[in-house]
C-alpha cells in the first residue's frame, strides 16, 4: 500500500513521512499527478494560512487530480491540520477564500476571550462517531491552530476538542478522514491512530 504525501509547499511533509517510515508504510512526497494517481492512499498535510494553502494547491495544479482521486475514485484520504481545514467550502483567514468544498462548512477564527490563542498543546478529544478514533486508547493529541472548522453537517464530525467550547477535532465521511490535531506529532497516540487506519484499509 503506497501513500502519496502531497507536497504543495505548506510545511510539515517531513514529519508525516517520518511517522509513516516509522510504521513501515511505503510513501512518497510528491506533487506529481501520475504518482498521486498510482498511490493507494493520499495524505494532505500542511500548516499555515488557509488562503496561501488554496493558492498553492491551485499553483501546483493539484485540485483536479485530488477531486478525481478522492471524490470520484474514493481513494482513502487523510488531511491533517491545514489539510483538514482546506476541505471546507470556504475560509475567512485574513480574507474570504473558497476551499476544496469536500466537507460543507467554514473555517473561522477561534474567539475565546478567556483563553490564549492559538490553541496550542496537548488536549483530550471526545469521540462523537464510531470510526478510526474508537480503538485508540489514548485520546490526547497535539493541537496548534488559531482557526477552526465550523462543520455544517454534524454527521461528518468524528471528534471534538474542548477549548472554552467544543471545536471540531476530527472529521470522517466515507473515504475522507481528517484531523485538526497533528497525529504525526502526537507520539504514541498519533502513531496508534495512523497504524489502525492503515490496518483497516490493508
Amino acid at each position: 500500500m503506497k501513500t502519496a504525501i502531497i507536497d504543495y509547499g505548506m510545511g510539515n511533509v517531513a514529519s508525516v513521512q517520518k511517522a509513516l517510515d516509522f510504521l513501515k508504510i511505503k510513501n512518497i512526497i510528491t506533487s506529481n499527478h501520475k504518482e498521486i494517481i498510482d498511490a493507494d492512499f493520499i495524505i494532505l498535510p500542511g500548516v499555515g494560512a488557509f488562503k496561501q494553502g488554496m493558492d498553492n494547491l491551485i499553483a501546483y495544479n493539484l485540485i483536479p487530480v485530488l477531486n478525481e482521486q478522492v471524490l470520484v475514485k474514493e481513494k482513502p484520504f487523510m488531511g491533517f491540520c491545514l489539510g483538514m481545514q482546506l476541505l471546507a467550502s470556504s475560509g475567512t483567514e485574513f480574507i474570504h477564500c473558497n476551499g476544496l468544498g469536500w466537507i460543507e462548512g467554514t473555517v473561522k477564527k477561534i474567539i475565546e476571550p478567556q483563553k490564549r490563542i492559538p490553541h496550542l498543546g496537548w488536549n483530550d478529544i471526545s469521540v462523537t462517531k464510531q470510526g478510526f478514533l474508537s480503538p485508540v486508547d489514548q485520546k490526547n493529541f497535539y493541537f496548534i491552530h488559531s482557526f477552526h472548522f465550523d462543520v455544517s453537517d454534524k454527521e461528518n464530525i468524528a471528534a471534538t476538542v474542548n477549548y472554552g467550547k467544543d471545536y471540531v477535532a476530527a472529521i470522517q465521511n466515507k473515504n475522507i478522514f481528517a484531523t485538526q490535531f497533528h497525529p504525526e506529532k502526537s507520539q504514541n497516540a498519533g502513531l496508534t491512530l495512523l497504524s489502525s487506519i492503515y490496518k483497516y484499509y490493508a
Binding site: 510545511g11 500548516v47 499555515g48 494560512a49 496561501q52 491545514l82 485574513f94 492559538p118 496550542l120 496548534i144 491552530h145 488559531s146
Partner: peptide, 8 residues
C-alpha cells in the same frame, strides 16, 4: 507570521 501562520 503572514507567510507561515502565527502558530509557528
Amino acid at each position: 507570521s503572514e507567510f507561515f501562520g502565527a502558530q509557528c
